[in-house]
Computed example of a mutant assay.
Amino acid sequence: MEKNSLDKIRENVKSYVGEKVRLKANKGRKKTTIREGVLESVYPSIFVVKIDGGYNTVRRVSYSYSDILTETVEVIVCKNEKKIQIS
């Protein structure tokens, strides 16, 4: 069952490559970070989001699909001012 859920999440994330997303990541001990970036690429185990760090810097962060499954990370797609949550 879990493998099937991860496959569905992977396919869902893959359909939004190139779109602007908002990440809300739980960092533990009641710490959360919210970042905006572009969903850059999708791999079999992880996905990569490119974040503009300011001052002409670019950061890339990666998360696994199990992070979405366990709700450690929320990915919200900002498409045409409409927000779609990936789960």
Rank of each mutant, 00 (worst) to 15 (best):
K30I: 14
N26C: 05
I51S: 00
K24E: 09
T32S: 15
E11N: 09
F47Q: 00
L39Q: 04
V38A: 06
K24S: 14
R60A: 00
V58I: 11
A25L: 01
S41D: 13
V48S: 08
Y55F: 15
A25Q: 09
L23Q: 02
N26D: 13
E11F: 09
G54H: 00
K8I: 11
P44V: 04
L6C: 02
I51T: 04
V17M: 06
L23C: 08
K30A: 11
S15H: 07
T57D: 10
R60Q: 05
I51F: 03
L23I: 13
K31R: 12
S41G: 08
L39E: 05
K30L: 13
Y43A: 10
T57Y: 15
T32N: 10
K30V: 13
T57R: 07
I34R: 09
V58C: 08
K24G: 01
K50Q: 13
Y16E: 06
E19L: 12
V42F: 14
Y16F: 08
I46D: 15
T57P: 06
Y16M: 09
R35I: 11
I46G: 06
E11V: 03
I34C: 12
R35A: 07
K27S: 04
K30F: 13
K14C: 08
V13T: 05
G54R: 00
V48A: 07
E11D: 12
K27L: 08
Y16A: 12
S41L: 00
E40W: 07
L6P: 03
N12K: 13
E11W: 08
V17L: 05
K31N: 15
G37N: 06
R59Y: 06
V13E: 05
R22T: 10
K31Y: 14
R10T: 03
T32I: 12
G28K: 01
G18E: 02
R59V: 14
Y43Q: 10
R10G: 03
V49T: 04
N56A: 10
E11T: 07
D52T: 03
K14A: 11
S15C: 12
R59K: 12
K50E: 07
D52A: 12
R29N: 12
G28I: 02
R60C: 02
S45Y: 08
R22A: 08
S15N: 10
V17Q: 10
D7R: 14
V42T: 09
E40Q: 12
K27N: 11
P44I: 01
N56K: 13
T33N: 09
Y43N: 15
Y43T: 08
Y16R: 06
V17S: 07
G28Y: 03
R35W: 11
G53R: 01
R10I: 04
K24N: 09
D7V: 07
S41E: 08
V58N: 11
R29W: 07
G37V: 02
L23N: 00
G37M: 05
I34A: 15
T32M: 09
D52K: 12
K27G: 07
V38N: 05
R60W: 04
N12P: 02
S15I: 08
G54D: 00
S45Q: 07
K20M: 13
R60N: 03
K24V: 13
N56R: 06
G54K: 01
